[in-house]
């Protein structure tokens, strides 16, 4: 379903962001992407929804290759990918319902189906009663749920989440994470970049760890070996850097 083969990404100013990255994600899998700030987590996610292209290697997502994809193909692919960010990215001047509906409208979905789909997505994230609230009237956790509802509206085969709990308190984090697990158990793959090592340790999902743009650990490849960079992550946590995006 998703395959990265020997992917490298370099930026003219900041240099190498990723080097020799290869891994696959199967249908319905839950994958954590971890690593300190600047390790390349966000860059990998951007390559997955083809907001950026690799300098070398190939990213293959649901039959679309980064080397040949046209703008239209990328647009179509994104309709099948749910994307969630740390900062929610909601439109402040629209209600929760309008924010979710927006994702359907701009892809030219038939009007007749929109209302039912929006209502179902808001119910799925537990926000049916707050459909008419504006983002400023919602808590951080609720805003993230609206963003998740928006990402689910087109029945994605994968949900890409970039630090979705980074701006949330512990309680809201637990709620959003549980929601992502529920989504995963209904068959949608989830790829979640996070700094939250507690969350990673408490669950038994596959973990891919990056450091300085290289893949240093993949629990699917060596399930029994200890994670090499646990101390590094501990250091990161100790440095209070957990809120920063990579």
């Amino acid at each position: 379903m998703i395959r990265l083969t020997d992917v490298a990404k370099e930026y003219p100013r900041s240099g190498t962001a990723l080097a020799q990255i290869s891994f696959q994600v199967k249908k319905g899998e839950f994958v954590f992407l971890t690593g300190p700030s600047g390790s390349g987590k966000t860059t990998i996610l951007k390559l997955l929804y083809m907001d950026d292209k690799p300098n070398r290697g190939e990213v293959w997502v649901n039959g679309v290759s980064s080397t040949t994809a046209s703008g239209r193909e990328i647009s179509r692919l994104r309709r099948r990918i749910g994307i969630v960010f740390q900062d929610f990215r909601l439109l402040e001047d629209r209600t929760a319902e309008a924010n979710v509906r927006f994702a359907l409208e701009v892809t030219g979905a038939p009007k007749a189906t929109i209302r039912a789909k929006v209502s179902r997505a808001l119910t799925q994230v537990g926000l049916a009663s707050k459909a008419t609230s504006y983002p400023r009237e919602l808590s951080g956790g609720e805003q993230q749920r609206v963003a998740i509802a928006r990402s689910l509206i087109n029945d994605p085969f994968v949900l890409i989440a970039d630090e979705p709990t980074g701006n949330l308190d512990e309680r809201a984090t637990r709620g959003v994470f549980q929601l992502l697990r529920d989504i995963n158990s209904s068959g949608t793959a989830v790829i979640m970049a996070t700094h939250d090592l507690d969350l990673v340790r408490r669950s038994n999902y596959r973990t891919i760890e990056l450091n300085h743009g290289r893949l240093v650990f993949d629990s699917a490849e060596s399930p029994l070996s200890p994670r090499p960079s646990d101390p590094t992550m501990a250091e990161v946590e100790a440095a209070g850097d957990t809120q920063e995006k990579s």
Binding site: R78, R89, V106, T107, G108
Partner: peptide, 17 residues
């Protein structure tokens, strides 16, 4: 600008935008 970036993320084509 924000609206445009969200439109792109959810798969609106450039022509549609």
């Amino acid at each position: 600008a924000k609206e445009i970036s969200i439109m792109r993320l959810v798969g609106a084509t450039d022509m549609f935008i």
